[in-house]
Simulated scan of single mutants.
Amino acid sequence: MNQVDFIFQSDVRRIFDHFTGAFDIRIVFFSYDGTELTSGDDLPRCRYCRTLREKLGYELTCKRLDRKQMVHAFQFKRLITYTCHGGMIEATLPVYTVDKLIGYIMIGQFRTSNRMPNKIRRQWNARFGNDEIYKIFLDAPFFPKHKVKNILGLFAVLVDFIVSHHLIRIKSVDSIQTIVGYIDAHPEANLTLTSAAEMLNCSVSSLTHAFKKATGRSFKNYVIDRKLLTAQDLLSSSNDLTISQIATRVGYDDPFLFSRIYKKHRGHAPSRYRSTLP
């Protein structure tokens, strides 16, 4: 079984470099497993986004939100637009060729309003005693809401043009590694066997046998194990997170269900594991 890896040709880079230059907004390419590859015209994150990540500790929060939206884009197979924690507009688009997911392209880090989230403003003021963050927010690229629709529409058309004109070069990689990489990168996603088979454009039965042969475990057990490994890491490294919050981060809306599954596979409850840590 083979899948494709996302590699863009120089023509693609030039197209997005011009798009980035025209609108002064960031475009980033991601592989199918959510790994950041590069950005259009190597444009860095806007100063506001860098400040939130570096000064207020939003790095992991931003990454989790981006990956969550990639999951939604994959599930719905369309452009997903959302507002980040800092009040900036972002959008992510899954890229397919021959019905196979090969990666994502994300556009964003611009605003449609002069109002920034009160939570961010309060956090900054409490830590630094000034309102400098609001000035930084206002320096971020601004577009009226009616313009955003046109910008994102043009963006989607460009991606469709790139794919339809075969400007994306592909190489074969093991498809099981594609799924394994996706599961490892998205512990919060509840990827089903059926969805994984659709992702690879193969039958459920063939994926079931190939996955077990390659990993030595069933698809279901592998997904659960990756979720629990992530949860265990959070239990030991993030004392400020509750069991319920950790459950949500690994894809369980019901913390009691999460605790039952954790105990079944680990032999003890997550709360007990945390209590044994130094």
Rank of each mutant, 00 (worst) to 15 (best):
S31Q: 12
S31E: 13
Y32M: 00
Y32E: 01
D33W: 02
D33C: 09
G34R: 04
G34V: 05
T35E: 12
T35Q: 10
E36F: 06
E36D: 09
E36P: 14
L37M: 12
L37Q: 10
T38A: 14
S39R: 08
G40F: 01
G40H: 02
D41M: 04
D41V: 00
P44T: 01
R45S: 10
C46D: 14
Y48G: 08
R50Q: 14
T51G: 07
L52V: 12
L52F: 13
E54G: 09
E54C: 08
K55E: 15
L56T: 06
G57D: 12
Y58K: 09
E59L: 13
L60N: 14
L60E: 15
K63Y: 07
R64H: 12
R64W: 07
L65V: 10
L65W: 01
L65G: 01
D66V: 08
K68T: 06
K68C: 02
Q69F: 10
Q69G: 01
Q69H: 12
V71G: 03
V71A: 10
H72P: 01
A73S: 14
F74G: 00
F74K: 05
Q75H: 11
Q75I: 10
K77H: 14
R78H: 12
R78D: 14
R78I: 05
I80D: 00
I80V: 15
T81F: 04
Y82K: 06
T83A: 05
T83R: 14
T83L: 12
C84L: 03
H85G: 08
G86N: 10
G86H: 05
G87C: 09
M88W: 01
M88G: 02
M88V: 04
M88R: 08
I89C: 09
I89F: 05
E90H: 13
E90L: 11
E90Y: 09
A91H: 10
A91N: 09
T92K: 01
T92H: 01
L93M: 14
L93Y: 14
P94D: 06
P94Q: 06
V95N: 03
Y96K: 08
Y96R: 10
Y96F: 15
Y96A: 06
V98P: 00
V98C: 03
D99F: 10
D99N: 15
L101I: 07
L101R: 03
G103K: 00
G103F: 00
I105W: 00
I105H: 00
M106T: 11
M106E: 11
M106A: 15
M106Q: 13
I107Y: 00
I107T: 09
